[in-house]
Simulated scan of single mutants.
Amino acid sequence: MMWNYLCRLYSNFMFWCLGVDRHKSIIKKRQQEIESFKAYSEKHSQINKEIRLQNLTDKVNRALQIKEQVIPVEEAEEELPELTAAQYKIIDNAFKGNPSEVLVRKFNLNITRRDLCTLAGLNWLNDEVINFYMNLIIERSKQSPDRPKTFAFNTFFYPKLLKDGPQGLRRWTKRVDLFEHDMICIPIHLGMHWCMAIIDFRDQSIRYYDSMGGSNDRCLRALKQYLEAEHLDKKKTPFDTSDFTLENVKDIPQQMNGSDCGMFSCTFAEYLTRDAKITFSQENMPYFRNKMVFEIVTGELLIK
């Protein structure tokens, strides 16, 4: 009995040993398969990476070739007039003192220190500052025969046009013939946002400039209808606008904050009314704010 028991015990032990060996062999085989698969995956991944890199390189090269063939070389940014230490002193003094003090009287407008402070930091421009600046643009066109002959409406024109229609604005042009001008600037106030519309009679266009990329077809149509009504009222003949281009201009500088819309609008007008390429950007706005303070205080634009 004891002998049989020992034999069974030995047999079971040997069977267990064989099982352990077989298990080790299976584990080793699986490890080899894993290592082999890992090596294959790494090689495959490297091949894919090289293919993607080559495809990207090919695309970039093709894009550069197309750009060289189709897109003209960009013009250098306009060199802006540098503000001197003496000019900066005038600018600094404009912000110091009684906010209610009138600093400038011109164009039947009074600009107070409080008005000028809307040009400081990231403040929103008010109507007085924008209207005064539009008058500076008009004055420059009168004094510079080589510049487009320009007229500008004030900031209250567009809201009244929408409210009362062209008939509500007939008296606004008693002393001016719009159709003798090359360009008309119309500041557009949308409650919390300033934009600029430009009528250019030279190429028969009405264009809308929004530094936040918006479109305003209603504005474009309203201005076209205003021109038709104004011509009929003042000239007593229909005005053919069938060839006019109405455009929401998109390829223009965009503001990177919520407060520089008025600055962008005025700067669009200043550039366009001297037929300058629009090359400024958001980073130029602190400079333009200081420049505008100096221009308003002295009563003339720096760029003649």
Rank of each mutant, 00 (worst) to 15 (best):
W3Y: 10
L9D: 02
M14Y: 05
M14N: 06
M14S: 09
W16C: 13
C17G: 08
C17Q: 12
R22T: 08
I26M: 06
I26F: 05
E35D: 12
S36R: 15
F37R: 14
K38V: 11
K38E: 01
S41W: 05
K43Y: 01
S45G: 00
K59Y: 05
Q69H: 10
Q69C: 13
V70R: 12
V70K: 12
V70G: 06
I71P: 04
P72E: 01
E77K: 10
E79P: 07
L80Q: 13
L83K: 14
L83F: 14
T84E: 00
A86M: 03
A86Y: 00
D92K: 15
F95Y: 12
G97F: 05
P99S: 06
S100R: 07
S100A: 10
V102M: 10
L103I: 14
T112S: 14
R113H: 09
R114E: 00
G121K: 08
N126H: 09
V129M: 06
I130A: 07
F132Y: 14
Y133V: 04
M134W: 01
N135P: 02
R140A: 05
Q143C: 12
P145G: 05
D146W: 06
P148V: 09
F151A: 13
N154E: 04
L161R: 12
T173C: 08
R175P: 04
R175K: 15
L178Y: 03
L178H: 04
D182S: 11
D182K: 05
I184K: 08
C185L: 15
I186V: 15
I186D: 00
G191T: 03
M192N: 08
H193V: 04
M196K: 06
A197W: 06
I198Y: 03
I198K: 08
I198L: 15
D200Q: 08
F201K: 11
R202D: 01
S205Y: 06
I206Y: 01
Y209P: 07
S215F: 07
D217K: 09
L220S: 06
Q225A: 14
A229I: 03
K236T: 00
S242N: 08
D243L: 14
T245K: 11
L246K: 03
E247D: 01
E247M: 07
V249F: 02
P253H: 02
Q255L: 09
C261Q: 02
M263S: 07
C266T: 12
C266N: 08
F268A: 06
A269R: 05
E270L: 12
R274L: 03
A276T: 09
K277W: 01
S281D: 07
N284W: 10
P286Y: 02
K291R: 15
F294I: 05
F294G: 03
T298E: 06
T298W: 00
K304L: 11
